[in-house]
Structure formats: C-alpha cells, structure tokens
Design a protein around this nucleic acid. Structure first.
Lengths: 211, 211
DNA sequence: TGTTGATTTGAATCGTGATTCACTCCTTGC
DNA sequence: GCAAGGAGTGAATCACGATTCAAATCAACA
C-alpha cells in the first residue's frame, strides 16, 4: 500500500487551494470578476489551468467562494462598527451608512465588483445574500429605533431597503470603474449628504448636526 | 438602368427594420435582453439571421435601439405626469415616484430589463443615459422645491440620486424575474411606503397624508 | 422577357473562455 | 530502488451565440 496522503500533503493541498482563492481575489480587487479568468488565476499561482479544477468544481464556484469571503469580511466590519456604536439607533444606522460607504469609496474596484459588476447567476446568488445581510442589519436597527421612538413609524424592511438603495445609488457614480479618483473632501461630502438624507427619511428626532 | 429602389421599396425596408425592432422589444419584454438572440428576433419575423444584419450593424446596436425606444417611452410618461401634476414640487416628485414605480410594478419584466438585467457595455451606456434622465428630472424638481422652501436644504443632485436609488431598491424585490406576482394591494403599500420615505427625506413641509 | 442590382438566405466560421483528459511528474511506504 | 497512486500539465475540445458571405431569389425597368 504505497503512497498514502499525509498531513503535510493535505496541508499543501489546502494551501494551494487557498492560493487560488487569493489569486482570484487579487484579480477581482484589481479588475473585477471578469478579469478573474481561470487562466489568469492559474498563471498567478504559476500553476496550470487544469490544476485549478482539481480544487474547484468550476470557475463559478471558485468565484462564488471569493465573493462570499470578500463580502463576509465587509459585513463583519459593518457589524462590528454597528456593535461598537452607542445604543442609540440613529448612531448605529449612521455607522452602518458611514462604514459601508467609506469602505466602498476607498476600495472602489472591489466595491464595484461586489455591488454592481454583472456576474454569473451563481455569483449573483451570493450577491443576493450579501445585499440582504446589509438590509437585515439595517432592518434590525430600524426596528429598535421604532421601538424606542427614535424613528418615525414606518415599515422597517422597506425603509432599510430604501436606505441601502439610496446609499448605493449615491455611491455608484463615484465607484464606477471609469470614474475619476475622487478627493477625500468630496467623499466626506457625499457620505455626509447620504447620512443626512437617510436620517431625515427615518425621521431621526434630533438633527445630528452637519459633520 | 434597370431596378432603381422606389418609394415602396424604401417603405418596405423601413417596415422590415421596424419589424425587427418590435420583435426584439417583444422578446425583451417577455424574457429580457438575454432572450433577444439574433436567431430569435429573425424567427419572430419569419426572416433569416442574415437579413437582420442588412438592417443593423450588430446585435448590440439593435438592442441599444430597443433600449432607447423603450426607455424614452417610459421617460416621456414620467415627464408628462410630472408636467400634469400641480406646481408644488412635492406633488411633482410624488408623481415621479408614483408613475415610475407603478410602471415598473405593472410591467415587471421590462422594468427588470431596463433597470437591472446585466447587458453588454453598449446597452449599458444607454441605461446610463436613461437613469440619469430620471435623476435629472428629479433634480430639477428638487431644485424648484428648494427654491420655494418646500424642501429642506440639501444637495439636489445627491438627493435625486438617493431618491431614485431608494425607489429602485425598494422595487427590485418585487420585479425580480423569479419573484412571485404581487397583489395590487401590496403594490399600493410599497408605492406609498416609498413615497413617504422620500417625502420625509426631502423634508416635505406638509405630511401629504397616507394614501 | 432579360438584365441589373438589391435583398434574402442559412450553413459555415469566428471568438472567447470554460472544461476535459491522456499523459507526465511526484510522493509515499516498502 | 521501486511500485502505486495522487497531482499537475496544457493542448484539444466544447459551448454558444454573433457574424459572415457566396449563392439564390426577387423587383424594377426597357
């Protein structure tokens, strides 16, 4: 019974698999999912096209995994920020908006890939989960805000969707692949503008002040 | 000098061209741009694939033209509704929101195609124009509303984008191709919810009432 | 009816990238 | 060193719809 996979072998396999994921992620972050062809991914790892397929069923699944990991990283950051914010619902939704848009505006290519780039149905399914995660977080905060009277009565789910939509649409012009690099000041204005728009929409009792 | 194209010939050519456009539009309205393959378009007109190419440079251009005509029809309806509404900015933006979402919710496949379906870059360029037309209309109304003091001070362009984003995102769940047919009541609730969300965001001075 | 050129046809070709697989190259355990 | 598999390779294949184009057909006019 010669050749039995050993611990080292297994680890190497995991590392290699991970290498493909990192390579793909790098390509996506640089030029979107479209650029993450199987050939490009393999090349980045000095491996052959075929070997990608001994670690993944298909390109789609590989990219779905890339999407999931990049997206859940983003979600985690937002969740953490929201948790760190005060218990006031308005502060928490403000953090959601601020972190979400700040991340998007600073990692524009990746944000574009995660939010807007046309992708295959398999990856699109991941995007659906990703988007609804944000909406879920928002919804919960809004529900709390309604309970505490911080927000004006309204449908929490609808409001959360609308907030995410308002934020996304306000951002899209800034993160489109061919748009010019925006200045830090502009970004601040956009973020603040979105924040106050959403605050008014939610009916936040106190103004929160400009800046 | 035999055979000279005549008026009838020319008319036939125009009609045929128009037939291809209609056919494509029908396919898009039924199943999106993806379904409007050159073969399907030709089949609908009992013509051959090749003849499509004597009227259009490429499928992309054909679809871009379909997009343009469908989109400008929508835009015209919105413009007309806005013009018919009172001179109060809040009424006019309310009409924009109502007609836009009403049309989308009642012609869901076409709305999905125009707003969300992944399309080629050439068609995407048309979508950009289409989207910014709505944003332009909204921006102008908001500008007027700011001038008359109907709305709270804010960046009109940003606000208009945010309104369009909020509306789109609130709608997307209802018009996704695989979503269930919504009831009339649900649609009314969604539209009303969106409208009040946006009214609050704009800081409309009077509530406008439910319904 | 014959001639000329416009129009139509649809099978063959292209383009693009994912996917396969027969073969070679390694590793392990004896 | 050597046999038994596991891994890696990359050229060939596949998928799929857009696009082409030589041949066939049709329309106008003398």
């Amino acid at each position: 019974m010669p050749y039995r996979p050993t611990a080292l072998t297994r680890q190497n396999a995991l590392d290699k698999r991970d290498g493909f994921l990192r390579a793909a992620r790098g390509l996506v972050a640089a030029d979107g999912f479209k650029a993450a062809t199987v050939a490009a991914i393999a090349a980045r790892c000095q491996a052959s096209v075929g070997s990608v397929y001994s670690y993944f069923d298909s390109r789609d699944r590989l990219l779905a995994e890339v999407f999931r990991s990049a997206a859940s990283h983003e979600i985690d950051l937002v969740r953490a920020a929201v948790a760190d914010a005060g218990q006031q619902a308005s502060e928490r939704i403000g953090e959601l908006i601020r972190i979400f848009s700040g991340r998007a505006l600073h990692g524009r290519r990746m944000a574009w890939a995660l939010l807007f780039e046309p992708v295959s149905p398999v990856v699109e399914a991941e995007r659906l989960v990703y988007r609804s995660s944000y909406t879920d977080i928002g919804e919960q905060i809004i529900r709390d805000g309604l309970a505490s009277g911080d927000f004006v009565p309204q449908d929490a789910r609808l409001a959360s969707s609308a907030v995410m939509g308002a934020v996304s649409e306000a951002l899209v012009g800034w993160i489109r692949p061919d748009s010019a690099e925006p200045s830090e000041i502009e970004l601040e204005c956009v973020m603040e503008g979105i924040r106050s728009f959403c605050f008014r929409a939610l009916g936040v009792s106190y103004a929160g002040g400009i800046r």
